[in-house]
Design a protein around this nucleic acid. Structure first.
Lengths: 243, 243
DNA sequence: CGCTTCATTGACGACGTTCAAGACATGTGG
DNA sequence: CCACATGTCTTGAACGTCGTCAATGAAGCG
């Protein structure tokens, strides 16, 4: 399913404060409004195929997508999770070697690659914000390398749930308990954490049995004490929530 | 040991073609020459401490350094390897959460953080090159995530040696055999590959016993058939050497 | 020459994978 | 409304890879 919409108002955009356009002045924003196109994908749809020519770049407005790296024999590793305001694509390169797959239904705000790359050259606001976003992605990737290389299965699952909870907390801060929905199935969780789906499932179960988390549905988790969960994740860093 | 040297000629710099300054015109290069300082570190020296305020940014001119992420209990993961022309540091952030350690003796070309960040704002040549470098680092980090999450110990070690060999090949292309020196000890190899030093050592040994590689010293490896090594690494990608 | 650091190798055990079966939820058609 | 199919999740049992602990050897240095 493909649906295109045009000319939504950039000033009211829900991701404007964090996306690649966040440093643009009103005049530049007007320019972007003429260039941009919205597009939606259904859960499970492949948004970008590895080895295929890249035609568009843009921002994820709504939903969750994953960046998948596959080996010849089928082994799969999720090397990035795209959430609203994250940038999609790789300027300056014809092709990428990973697929981007919609995990939930997804809406993107996109530009043609050529137009965006021209903008990148001419607009310091876009260029410098793009650099910031890329540096943040790099930090996140390195954080994940520590997880993949050194954490136990239990710590991996705890870290994942903590990560989701942290993003949810930004909105509804308050008490110590939170309820969140995991955007991934056990199988995708495994692919993200460098585990099998069985191990992922087992670790969710043990965390549940020990009272660190409570399961409402398989995808819905209530966390009575965030501190306890963060402790299981194994990093000293609790995300600054209890600083 | 700290030694400072100034005013070397940027035009003759060995990393000028790839470093953050590679897109600068002669006039900007003159500006850089006034700002820059050289500094050397001995093998093993910590160049940047986690949690400490960043004062300088720059480029690695000579040697090898590693970016180390440590957990409270001491578990260590190397999340990046810095080679000549790679950029050192994190513009736009006061602190980093990893150490940067000189693996061999190292020479860097550095600027004060404040000055470099001003340059980043005013010079499109520096800004856009910086973005390219960061995107490349991100690609490399994701490649490594696949290795850490999904490859076997054998594949990890093969991939590492293949990576080193590939960089060596750029200079002396020709026959099918190459001899390279591994810049890391078995222990650091393990930290880089998400393995213990024993497993790293064992896999080097088995690759040797099977004739995939030959050991001249513990750090010096001769590869009779690069194709065979790349096959062990598990990626379809052979680096385009046999395209 | 002893000290230190690095590399190799062996024995053993733990953690996570693999293979397999069953539970649960949701949707479809008779 | 129930039978049946599909996909996800859970749980069990056996196996294997890799980590742990330990001993030994090789190389560099004061």
């Amino acid at each position: 399913m493909i649906s295109n919409t045009k000319q939504e108002d950039c000033a009211n955009c829900p991701i404007h404060h964090r996306a690649v356009c966040s440093k643009c002045e009103p005049d530049e924003l007007g320019l972007l409004e003429k260039m941009k196109t919205y597009r939606t994908y259904e859960a499970g749809e492949v948004m970008v195929w590895a080895e295929e020519r890249i035609t568009h770049l843009g921002s994820l407005v709504d939903g969750v997508a994953s960046i998948n790296r596959t080996m010849e024999d089928g082994r799969l590793q999720v090397v990035g999770l795209l959430l609203p305001s994250d940038f999609i694509g790789r300027p300056g390169r014809e092709r990428v070697i990973y697929d981007i797959v919609a995990v939930t239904d997804v809406t993107v705000c996109q530009f043609t690659k050529a137009e965006f790359e021209k903008l990148l050259k001419t607009s310091p606001a876009v260029g410098s914000r793009m650099l910031e976003l890329t540096l943040d992605e790099l930090d996140a990737a390195r954080e994940w390398m520590l997880l993949l290389g050194r954490k136990t299965a239990r710590e991996k699952v705890a870290t994942f749930i903590a990560m989701i909870a942290r993003r949810a907390m930004v909105e509804k801060a308050g008490g110590t308990g939170v309820t969140v929905t995991l955007p991934l199935t056990r199988s995708s969780m495994g692919d993200f954490l460098g585990l099998t789906l069985e191990t992922a499932s087992r670790q969710v179960s043990t965390l549940k049995n020990e009272g660190i988390i409570e399961l409402c549905g398989p995808q819905t988790v209530h966390i009575p004490d965030l501190r306890a969960l963060f402790a299981e994740a194994g990093d000293s860093d609790d995300g600054g929530l209890f600083a």
